[in-house]
Design a protein around this nucleic acid. Structure first.
Length: 870
RNA sequence: GGGAGCAUAGCUCAGUUGGUUUAGAGCAUCUGCCUUACAAGCAGAGGGUCCGCGGUUCGAGCCCGUGUGCUCCCA
């Protein structure tokens, strides 16, 4: 069979993915095996694959594939999130393009457009995950608005309301004036924003001197209900209890004193606008101030403002500043930078606003969720996120769950004309409840227009994908729950992780997962976050087409150190592609040997084979422990180096027969076996190339995808040490060849002076092959006219046809000598320190003594050589 | 303003209760090679005041204090 020059991912990826799916390897049903379960963080149904998903899902796939090969019954559940705000915005935009406004549609009409849109464009991302090789159990695909799921969300709402955990209340919320909806705190992004600080003059009743306040929001003065100063501020003490007048509208407001005010900021006098600032609201509550809401829903001024009615808040800011200046109320403006909240979805400045919303009281349900994490019953990797989590959970605030949207789970509350309401699953039940509660039969009730926050449905995800709430105690939930590992971004630790833990305890009476692995944030190579506006998000599918899925997986994993952000650079994908190629070429080499096997019994590759077997054992162990600590990047690096360096650069070169020479049959078979094991080790990280190579190595019935790992033996330390010695010797003598500028074809005579004759005997033929020697001789004395190299404790003398150039030999040896003497000195200093000898562990003492004697003997060898050179 | 974290080679990072050589890896750089699997490759080399200062200790990249710089979270 003719093998192509390079590995061609495009031709094999689809083939293997189809094969894996068709053979049902990704499907899971409960059986006698131990389960290993991951629920995928459901991407937005509107989403397309970006780097974050790629990282996240590659990690999950690695964990799942490895567990599958270790004998677990693995179940990885895919799905999508209805993402109320994002999806509704997309649907609204789509309708606008068709010339339809949302306000011209009824709720049902709008929803039918939305569903149509969802069926057509939703879930593209799931198809893209297949390209990446993700081994998901597709039959289990779940959507947060599936019928059963929807019902569960509603039931949970009703149950929590019954318990008194959900309540309706007027509170300060973050209002998005563009999306016309409330936002939770987590949906508000704070950004440093340049503003102006306006100094305004308020006249004081019965006084000639006015009071000056500083504000960044002059357009809100019509909502002022007080001026506040610090009680100990000498400048204003005489004004306590007096009244001031709001400019332009001449409303009379009290001057109050409260320690909340920072004396150093601005003028030390603060205008209090309880309807439009969170802190002012609290101050207003405390001092019983009037609340004057001067805005409409869309950010324009309302009747209550008296002036500028109907104009946008930011236009008013400019206009009112001009008017205030003209009338002498504006004394000065200064530049001022502070953090301003913006809506995550629409990027408009969020307006703090008082509003009647639905809330979840968090304090009680947070308690068990906090303890589990602090006591490591749910383990966080990296553990630093425990602190972040605790800080948030200890200061948790109530959760605003109503959104003024249509796409989502409609709040199951029913109102009569007078605003009285009941919470019920449907209208029929609501009418009955209403009668029980208010004594009115057959009332005409209207359902709440609002939807629930998206996270109010996704917090049920880990159990509701197994219908653990809608069909309690079913076989699947019993088998798969609690799930094993959650892999997610630290950004949603509060949005999602914390709330899933709460819901798990609330409804399943136990944790939803055993461990959480937080990935880093994907940044570009300059360390900037990937964003649409910067245009620095790479086209992932394009990259997969260009480099192959394995290379993409490799690239993103190799640059993803555990617990750190990842700086994404396309060069890493190139490295992955090159790695594919390296493996491919090793295959080509071995394939050349296939037809020329012999059955000699010379056994000349014994050392190479024994050594590699031990390296494989050693590295398998290392990879195991790294995987247990979620050090995936390091595990991949280790496997990469095992394949590239140990297998290709050393092992294959050691056993490689001469040009067109045969290879011993058993050696060939051993090598196929090693290669297969390497592919098995690599498979979770790079599934396609490994499966392809596995099948090309020899005809097979089985697939690597489900091949079970065999437990490895402990490596023999001695063999590994000899391997290290052999490598060092080859490298050291190659350096000699290099410095002598010997052509690869030029042969050398090698004389070895060593105390370890048996060792060198066992590796002699490898040395000969790798260094192109015409003969190897053992000697007790130095060899005149040779180039001397000291490697470890052994001395090598190289004799060539060409006259030896020893000019740089002396410098090299002297450099080595200086280093060794410095080293010896530091060891001797330690050993001559009485307190060290007294206090140090015996093993460490012995080690230091060994270091000393080794150094001494090396120094002697070098000094002898130097003497010889003269 | 409050809290958390980070600082090791040009870049990204390892460095496991303080002793395992005078600190390692990958990438990048430089030198020499189209050597019969691989130039997307091979063989080598150079490169570090472990952020500054002080302390604990026989011994500090690692522990403590302090300063500086950066990042994130919360107000």
């Amino acid at each position: 069979m003719e093998l192509s020059k390079n590995f061609e991912p495009q031709s094999v990826e689809q083939k293997w993915y189809d094969q894996w799916v068709n053979k049902g390897y990704f499907k899971s049903t409960p059986d006698e095996r131990t389960p290993y379960t991951i629920v995928m963080p459901p991407p937005n149904v509107t989403g397309v694959l970006h780097m974050g998903h790629c990282l996240n899902n590659t990690i999950q796939d690695i964990l799942i594939r490895r567990a599958r090969m270790m004998g677990y019954n693995t179940c990885w559940v895919p799905g999508t999130d209805h993402a109320s705000i994002a999806t509704e915005a997309k649907v609204v935009a789509m309708l606008r393009e068709r010339g339809i406004t949302k306000s011209s549609l009824s709720r049902d009409e709008f929803l039918s457009y939305a569903w149509e849109w969802k069926e057509k464009y939703g879930g593209i991302i799931l198809q893209q995950l297949k390209k990446l090789g993700c081994s998901l159990d597709w039959d289990r695909t779940t959507f947060t608005m599936d019928k059963d799921y929807y019902q569960s969300v509603i039931s949970v709402f009703i149950a929590l309301h019954k318990k008194g955990v959900i309540y309706r209340g007027k509170r300060m919320i973050n209002w998005d004036v563009k999306a016309l909806t409330a936002l939770s705190d987590e949906e508000v992004i704070r950004k440093e924003t340049k503003q102006k600080l306006y100094h305004l003059r308020y006249n004081v009743e019965g006084s000639d001197t006015p009071i000056i306040i500083a504000t960044v929001r002059p357009e809100t003065i019509m909502g002022d209900s007080a001026i506040c100063v610090h009680p100990t501020d000498e400048r204003y003490k005489h004004l306590h209890g007096k009244f001031a007048t709001v400019p332009l509208i001449n409303r009379r407001i009290p001057i109050i004193a409260d320690e909340y005010v920072t004396m150093e900021f601005g003028t030390g006098a603060l205008k209090v606008t309880p309807a439009h600032d969170v802190n002012d609201y609290a101050l207003g509550q405390k001092h019983n101030l009037e609340i004057i809401d001067i805005f409409n829903d869309n950010g324009t001024l309302s009747e209550a403002a008296q002036i500028y009615i109907g104009l946008d808040r930011f236009d008013v800011r400019k206009k009112i500043a001009a008017e205030l200046e003209e009338k002498g109320f504006l004394l000065k403006t200064e530049e001022y930078t502070s953090e301003v909240g913006y809506s995550e979805r629409t990027d408009v400045v969020v307006e703090p606003r008082l509003s009647l919303q639905w809330w979840v009281s968090m304090k009680d349900i947070a308690t068990p969720a906090l303890t589990t994490v602090m006591e490591d019953e749910i383990k966080f990797y990296p553990p630093k996120f425990k602190n972040v989590y605790r800080h948030w959970m200890e200061n948790i605030k109530d959760w605003c769950i109503s959104r003024q949207l249509w796409w989502g789970h409609r709040i199951p509350a029913w109102y009569d004309n007078e605003g009285r309401f009941v919470v019920a699953a449907n209208e029929k039940e609501a009418v009955i409840l209403f009668e029980q509660q208010f004594g009115i039969a057959n009332a005409t009730l209207k359902q709440d227009e609002d939807c629930l926050d998206t996270w109010f449905s996704s917090w049920l995800w880990p159990f509701e994908v197994f219908k653990g709430y809608s069909n309690p105690g079913n076989a699947e939930i019993k088998y798969y729950y609690p799930t094993d590992t959650l892999v997610t971004a630290p950004e949603i630790i509060f949005f999602w992780v914390a709330r899933m833990i709460m819901a798990g305890f609330e409804y399943m009476e136990t944790k939803p997962f055993k461990e959480v692995y937080f990935t880093g944030i994907v940044r570009d190579k300059l360390g900037r976050k990937m964003s649409k506006s910067l245009g620095n998000s790479p086209d992932l599918l394009g990259l997969i087409d260009q480099y192959g899925a394995d290379a993409a997986r490799f690239g993103i994993m190799i640059s993803s150190p555990a617990g750190n952000d990842i700086l994404f650079d396309e060069a890493a994908l190139e490295q992955g592609r090159n790695f594919n190629n390296k493996i491919w070429n090793a295959l080509k080499l071995i394939k050349m040997w296939e037809g020329r096997q012999s059955s000699s019994t010379l056994n000349e590759n014994k050392f190479a084979i024994d050594w590699f077997e031990n390296r494989l054992n050693e590295v398998s162990g290392e990879v195991n422990s790294m995987m247990q600590q979620f050090r995936l990047s390091e595990a991949l690096k280790t496997i990469y180096s095992l394949i590239w360096d140990d297998f290709c650069s050393w092992y294959l070169e050691w056993i490689k027969p001469g040009f067109e020479q045969p290879i011993e049959r058993s050696d060939y078979e051993k090598t196929i076996g090693f290669f297969s094991e390497l592919m098995q080790l690599l498979h979770p990280f790079m599934p396609f190339v490994s499966e392809e190579i596995y099948h090309l190595l020899q005809e097979r019935e089985d697939d690597l995808c489900v091949k079970q790992y065999i437990p490895k033996q402990q490596p023999e330390k001695r063999l590994l040490e000899v391997g290290t010695l052999l490598k060092a010797t080859i490298s050291g003598l190659r350096d000699v060849r290099n410095k002598q500028q010997l052509k690869p074809k030029e042969k050398i005579k090698l004389f070895i002076q060593t105390d370890e004759l048996a060792i060198f005997n066992s590796i002699e033929n490898i040395l000969s092959k790798q260094l192109n020697t015409s003969e190897i001789t053992y000697t007790k004395d130095s060899i005149p006219g040779s180039f001397t190299a000291v490697i470890g404790k052994d001395t090598f003398y190289v004799v060539t046809e060409q006259p030896i150039d020893i000019s740089n030999q002396k410098t090299a040896l002297e450099k080595e000598l200086t280093h060794l003497k410095g080293f010896l000195q530091s060891v001797e200093k330690k050993l001559s320190n009485e307190r060290f000898v007294q206090n140090a562990n015996p093993e460490i003492l012995a080690l230091e003594q060994k270091k000393k004697s080794d150094a001494l003997s090396k120094i002697k060898v070098i000094e002898d050589s130097l003497k010889l050179i003269g």
